[in-house]
Each structure stands twice: as structure tokens, then as C-alpha cells.
Write a protein that binds this DNA or RNA. Structure first.
Lengths: 359, 359
DNA sequence: CTGAAAGCGCTAACAC
DNA sequence: GTGTTAGCGCTTTCAG
């Protein structure tokens, strides 16, 4: 607990604190006589001196702290993002303070207040909901903000995200090309841009290919296994034609759907194909291994950090939104529908029939 | 970026900064005339004043920062721990700064330096290796340290951990009671106390019940799926009698073992039972669902935080080690060995035979 | 109840 | 090259 101050070092080294300060600062050491500097350094080491970052920050008006606000630390795509952020910001001397909102807007507010009061130099937010734009604008008056993963409606913020529309297109087209024409979607909370984007990609493909959506109506209250199971069960229990494929907006809901299928005595992919989103750990080890969408989370983290750096360097660039491209991961939970024939097959058949009649 | 200072508020409210300071501090507001206080509060709100935590910290000698050092943020048992820590420390006004070491001792050192320089008030470390005791003792001279999850050899630190010996006993005994007598162990790096403890629990049970260990010799370099698979494959490829059960020291290695089994054309649990450790997400959804050990991580986080709090409150209690009890989760990856009969069955049989002879 | 003054530990001007 | 002085924004005596 012994707090050695710069003054202690200076006295012991027989110099003024200012000199000691210079000698110990990498950026100003060259202003000091080499011999003096070495003496100061020696004493500092001997006394176990550690600079008080607080005092320096107060004087220089900088804390070297970057706040990162996430919705849920348990989300498995976060670690690669955090690692990417840290990889870039750490070597620049920044320390990362992580806070969690649990998806609660009130907590988001509180946490941002906290961070601003602590004079963090920037805030990375990956916990935004669609309607948080106005609030974030006020935060941005105090400190640079970079949105990660989730956008807010209205734009106007530096944003680095995944291209969710594209990702959803990728999986949905994959299913359509397998021959699926009646698809259902398991939606997450639509005030989160990721889920909203995935919904749009899905819809777009359905429209383009003239497919039918079988719908349960409501989205999941939370994007969890339990909710996925509940929604999928409702889907299967409903009257009317069953979908041949289910697009879950994340892996957890896909797993819930898998459970619901099993309980209904149906098989995946024989009876119904299921896809997830995120490529969470172990999804490749499920039965069946899950077809899903892989996100470049680590790259996203790095990109978030560089975006933040350029803001910190006062490069007053206008807000941009960059969307990184996800990747389709095809595994065994998707196959051609059993009761319906793929387009090509049908085309061939009808041609055959036509020819047969002609003879 | 407008930084409103206390002075600004004071001037505007027509009072001295000291008065403004008192009026705005929950602990000293009662020292101020109610009317004055309200005026100050109004102005503060109006101007958007936010206290500069740095300046206050410098003056009061406290930062309200707690450092948390983890080995790998991707580890799925961390979030509940972090949440537990935050739940307890957050309401007390502490902010959590999370850093990662990637299991590198050098990084651990650097990170601790950083945190001390920033005058964090306490450091929670769940990234310790067995040999870090001496280093941590030096850190402890500057700031309270609480070890989470992993101990260091030699003791002498406030430690909150899981009872790994017990956990390993639980799964191993479960296997023995199913009738297994030839078991193998997939070990993680033994300089991490968690893995070392699990090794001991396993050995203890084997000794007590007179079972045989089939060994691959080396532990995993990293406790990953790939390593688990490699070690399990080596185990299966080796000459000599095959184990009927494999105890992996974490779920990832267990999954690797599952893979290796599949590749060798063997089934789990029919040919070999496999158990994991940690009860990571989705382990219940694997094929077969994995028998494993569930850790009270959330409770551990809370306990870590309260231990830290009592240290911060200067309660100079001597270092204690508390080990929280894990829980056995039996699923479908374990069954009685095919070629060997469970104890009870054998007992019943031999009794039957005896009785048969008597007639 | 409020104001004046000092100072937390450091760095930035400015002198010498 | 090095010392002097001032002050970052706040809290804390100590007066009044």
C-alpha cells in the first residue's frame, strides 16, 4: 500500500520533481541529461515508484480509459470482439472497462453516466436498441461513441456492424436453392438492429423467389433456447401446412427449435431443415451439426477500435457505418425438403411428362 | 465535450465551490441549507454538471476501480462470475475493468502493473498459475488481491474457488459406481490449480476403489477440443486394454474425445463413457448429452466480490480459501460398461449362484 | 451554515 | 539541462 510519489523519487535522487517527471516520461526523457536520468530511473525502481495515472490524467485531461458497454457478457460472440478491441487499444495504452446492461435501457443510461463521470475517453456500445439514438447523441456531446454490432435507427453514429441482411439472405437462399418454398422464421427482439436486419434479409429472399412464410406472429421475448423452443412448438402445433425449413435468428433459438422438433417426433433435416445464426461454439457438434452464419467478430472488434482511435485523434470524420460480411457455414441441419421436389427436379419431371404425352 | 466544472456550478449558483461540493455530495448534503442545496442542484442539472471522478479520486485517494484479470474471456464460465462480481460491486459504486492474459505470465505482470498504476482499489485474479504466488505477493503490497477460481501454490492469498477435487471425485465415483474399473483421464495444464485439483480427485477415487488408470502420459498443452481429440485418439490407438470410461478435465476436451471416438468407430456411452467438466452451454444438447460437473460460478463471483469488499473495508482478516461445491450433472454420455458388470449386478449374480448351489 | 485556503500528484510554461 | 511556478477539479480542514 506504500504509495511512492514522484516527489519522493525526486528528493531521493536530488533533483526537482519536474526533472524527475521528465526523466520518467518516455516522450520527454531526451530533455534530460543522460546521467541524471539514469539516477532518477534507478531511484524510481529502487523505491518501487509507479506513476499515479489519476494525477497525470487530471493534469493532462486524459484518463486512458475506454468504456465498452455490452448487453450480455454471456453472449459467445462477444469475446472475439472484446479481444479485437483490446488488441488494438491495449498497445496504445488504453485500458478497457467493460459494463453490462442486461438489455435494460435504464441500465444503459446509468452506465453511460458512470463512464462519462469517470472521464473515459471513448465509449464503445454494443448494447444499443433501435430507439437509443437520441440518448446516444447526448452522450456523444461529452465523449466519442462507436456503435458495435447494433445500429440505432436514424443513423448519425460511427457504427461497425455485421451485415445482417446479407447473412440472412445467405442462409435463406441456401434453403431456397435446396428447394424449400414454405419457410418460417424465429425472430429475436426486433428493436435490436441485428434481428431486424435478419428479418429483412429473410423477407427479401422470400419475396424475390415467391416463397411462402409460415408465421407464428410474435417474435421471441428473448433470443433464448427456451423461447426458440416455444415458438417452434407453436409453429408445429398450428393448423395449416407446415414449413419445410425454419430460419432461426440465432443459434440458441435454432437449438430450441431442434428440441421442439424432437418432441413433436419430427427429424431434422429429413422433415424440417433448421438454420441458426452466429456459429456459436459447439454448434458444429450438435446433432445434427447446425447450418449457420459465421460472423467476423474479431475483425469487427479491431475495426471498432480503429474507428475509435481515429475519433480520439480528433479526425473529425463524419459518422460512417461499415458492415462486415458474414459467411455461410453449411452443415447437416439443412437438406432438400422431403415432400416437395426441388425446382430443377420438378422442371425435369414436367418436361419428361410432356415428352411422354407427345409420343 | 463541454466539461462543466464544480466551479462553474458554484459561480452560477452564487456560492463557493466548497459549498457546491457539499451540496452535491450525498454524504454531506445535510451540512448545507436546504434552499441553497436545491439551488445548487438545479444549476448543476441545468448545466449538465458531472463530477470529475478523477479529481475526486486524486483528492480522496480512491478511484472506485476494481481490476479483474482473466485468462481468457472466451471461457464460458466467466460471464456468470463477472456478473456476480459486478452485481455486488456495482451498487457500491465500483467500476470493473476487465483484462485478459491469454495465460501468459508476462502479460499477467504487465496487466497488474497497469492496474496498480491506475490506482485500482483491488484486483481480482482468475488467471493465476501455480507459480505466481511470489509475484502476487508483491502486487498485494500495493493493493488488495482476491484470487478467483485458481489458487496458487503456497497459499497466503484470499481465494475463492471451486472444489475441484470434490468435483472430480463426483464424476469419477459416478463412473466407478456404474461399474467402470479401467479409466483414463484427459488432463489440462497442470500448473493451473483447477486441473491439478481435478487430477487429484480422480486419482484419489481410483486408489480408493482399486481401479486402473489407462494413461497417455502427457497433459493437454491447452484444454481445447483439438487437444482432447488428440489425446483421446492416442489413448485409443495405444496397445493394451482400452479404458471403459474417459474423464476429461473440461467439456471441450470431452467433446474432442467424443470426436476421436467417432473417428475410431466407437460409440459413447456403449463402448466408452465420457464425462466433461464445467457444464458449458450446449453440452446438454450434444449427442450424447454430456455428463459433467456444474460449477456455482455466479455464487463464486458474488463471494469473490464480498471478499474483496471486506478487504477494502480494512477488515484485516487473514487470508482464507473458500471452495464452493460443484454439482454432478448426469446425462447420457455415461452408462455401465458393456464388457464389465456393475458391482451390484455382480453381487446379485454371485448371491444367486450361491443360492442355486445350496438347493 | 458558508467561505477561504491548502493540497492530492502530476505536467506545462517559463525562467535561469 | 534543470528549477520555479502555477494549476488540473475536487475535498477538506479551519475560520467565521
Amino acid at each position: 500500500m506504500a504509495d511512492v510519489t514522484l516527489k519522493d523519487v525526486a528528493v531521493r535522487a536530488g533533483v526537482h520533481v519536474a526533472t524527475a517527471s521528465r526523466a520518467l516520461d518516455p516522450d520527454r526523457r531526451h530533455l534530460v541529461n543522460a546521467e541524471t536520468r539514469q539516477r532518477v530511473e534507478a531511484v524510481a525502481r529502487e523505491l518501487g515508484y509507479r506513476i499515479n495515472v489519476l494525477a497525470r490524467g487530471l493534469r493532462k485531461g486524459s484518463t486512458g480509459l475506454i468504456g465498452v458497454v455490452v448487453a450480455d457478457l454471456g453472449n459467445p460472440f462477444l469475446p472475439p470482439i472484446l479481444r479485437g478491441v483490446e488488441e488494438v487499444l491495449g498497445p496504445r495504452g488504453y485500458l478497457i472497462a467493460v459494463s453490462e446492461t442486461h438489455e435494460d435501457p435504464e441500465t444503459l443510461r446509468r452506465v453511460c453516466e458512470q463512464l462519462v463521470a469517470r472521464r473515459v475517453e471513448g465509449i464503445v456500445i454494443s448494447a444499443a436498441h433501435a430507439g437509443d439514438g437520441d440518448f446516444l447523441a447526448t452522450v456523444e456531446q461529452s465523449v466519442p461513441v462507436v456503435l458495435a454490432v447494433r445500429r440505432v435507427s436514424g443513423g448519425g453514429h460511427h457504427t461497425v456492424t455485421h451485415d445482417d441482411v446479407l447473412g440472412a439472405r445467405l442462409v435463406t437462399e441456401h434453403l431456397v436453392k435446396l428447394g424449400h418454398r414454405r419457410l418460417a422464421q424465429l425472430r429475436g427482439p426486433q428493436d435490436v438492429s441485428s434481428f431486424a436486419g435478419r428479418a429483412r434479409g429473410f423477407q427479401d429472399v422470400l419475396t424475390e423467389y415467391g416463397c411462402t412464410e409460415v408465421t407464428t406472429g410474435e417474435p421471441a421475448r428473448e433470443p433464448t433456447t427456451a423461447e426458440g423452443r416455444r415458438l417452434a412448438a407453436a409453429l408445429l402445433a398450428a393448423g395449416g401446412p407446415r414449413p419445410t425449413a425454419i430460419v432461426a435468428q440465432n443459434d440458441l433459438m435454432a437449438i430450441g427449435a431442434l428440441d421442439a422438433l424432437g418432441e413433436a417426433g419430427l427429424r431434422c433435416p429429413e422433415d424440417i431443415s433448421i438454420v441458426g445464426y452466429n456459429d456459436a461454439p459447439l454448434t458444429g457438434h450438435l446433432t445434427p451439426p447446425l447450418t449457420t452464419v459465421r460472423l467476423p467478430s474479431h475483425a469487427l472488434g479491431r475495426r471498432v477500435a480503429t474507428t475509435m482511435l481515429s475519433q480520439l485523434d480528433q479526425n473529425q470524420e463524419p459518422p460512417t457505418t461499415v458492415a462486415l460480411e458474414p459467411e455461410l457455414v453449411i452443415r447437416a441441419s439443412t437438406a432438400a425438403p422431403a415432400d416437395e421436389e426441388p425446382e430443377v427436379v420438378r422442371a425435369v419431371r414436367s418436361r419428361d411428362r410432356r415428352e411422354a404425352r407427345r409420343r
